[in-house]
């Protein structure tokens, strides 16, 4: 009996030590090298910031194009995935029953478990297929990447929307019905606003996933030197790929430091999104636990 507790005690301390040390070391190392290089020249290199932002002159030695590329990518992904993701979540929470509900939630679960490289492969196959059939000169591009990322983040949207709607008290629905709300009105004016914070949290979570994923975009059109994304059918740059590429292919100290800077920026972006998400979800929980 005592031996077991002793063993567990050793394991517990060892595990805590392992996690805390490795995490602090990795992040500390990153901050140590990355924090000092965060300034305007990290973003814009030698190009004047104003000209870079307006796009009148290209940025060659800064992370600006990758930064904007990531923002565009996330924006495009959300534009494609928001409506179906939230819609499917609401459908699961309120309008499906029995086998249908089980099948659909299982499909969403399975989609969540698909490795992101397989999503990328799917995008790639899709392009091969398009080339052979409809559009002979289809190629990998930012729209394709966003489409595949949308697939990747959809489950997060569906699941958080569903659980926020399901966590609302039943009396809310009954009240709405007794006041003569139609189904559509109830959704738009009562349920979605009431579950709004939870849904917003899910959106942040999904944005975080879209911003950090590398495997999908690697197969669907990301490059290292395209400049700002030129249009929906163009190649693009992105922060995570820039970081990935730097780790393997950097040629001088300056590029390496830029990599550290990019890693810091991406880390801060993801951390901010996750923080916002958890904050929103927590206030949502508190709100409804406080209510009857």
């Amino acid at each position: 009996m005592d031996a077991r507790i002793k063993l567990l005690r050793i394991l517990a301390w060892l595990s805590a030590f392992f996690v805390i040390c490795s995490f602090l070391m990795l992040i500390g190392f990153l901050i140590y090298h990355g924090a000092p290089v965060i300034n305007t020249s990290l973003f814009f290199g030698n190009t004047a910031p104003l000209e870079a932002i307006t796009g009148s002159r290209p940025v060659w030695d800064g992370i600006w194009p990758a930064f904007i590329g990531t923002l565009c990518l996330v924006g495009l992904t959300m534009a494609i995935s928001l409506l179906p993701g939230i819609g499917c979540g609401i459908y699961l929470a309120r309008y499906s029953e029995g086998r249908k509900k089980e099948m659909l939630s299982m499909a969403v679960d399975l989609l969540a478990s698909v490795p992101s490289i397989v999503m990328g492969l799917f995008g790639f196959v899709l392009i091969l297929f398009l080339r052979r059939t409809l559009a002979p000169d289809a190629t990998t591009c930012i729209s394709l990447a966003a489409f595949c990322l949308a697939l990747l983040v959809m489950p997060a949207l569906v699941v958080t929307t569903r659980s926020s709607i399901e966590s609302l008290p039943d009396s809310l629905v009954t009240t709405g019905i007794s006041l003569g709300f139609t189904e559509q009105q109830m959704l738009l004016h009562i349920l979605i606003p009431a579950a709004g914070k939870g849904i917003l949290g899910g959106i942040m979570l999904a944005m975080g996933r879209a911003a950090e994923d590398t495997a999908v975009i690697m197969l669907t059109g990301v490059v290292v030197n395209s400049g700002l994304p030129a249009g929906l059918g163009s190649k693009f740059e992105a922060l995570p790929f820039l970081i990935f590429y730097t780790a393997a292919q950097y040629t001088d100290q300056e590029e390496l430091l830029r990599g550290f800077g990019a890693a810091m920026v991406l880390l801060m972006l993801s951390a901010a999104l996750l923080y916002a998400a958890s904050k929103l979800q927590r206030t949502m929980e508190k709100h409804w636990k406080g209510a009857r």
Binding site: R94, Y95, A107, L126, L151
Partner: peptide
């Protein structure tokens, strides 16, 4: 509440869209 007649069309469409994407991915791969 669970009456299918009243389900807004965009919700049905989203559910159909998500499940068809899932099947497309699975079938393609």
């Amino acid at each position: 509440m669970k009456d299918n007649k009243n389900t807004p069309i965009w919700l049905k469409a989203s559910a159909a869209y998500v499940s068809s994407l899932m099947s497309a991915l699975f079938i393609f791969i």
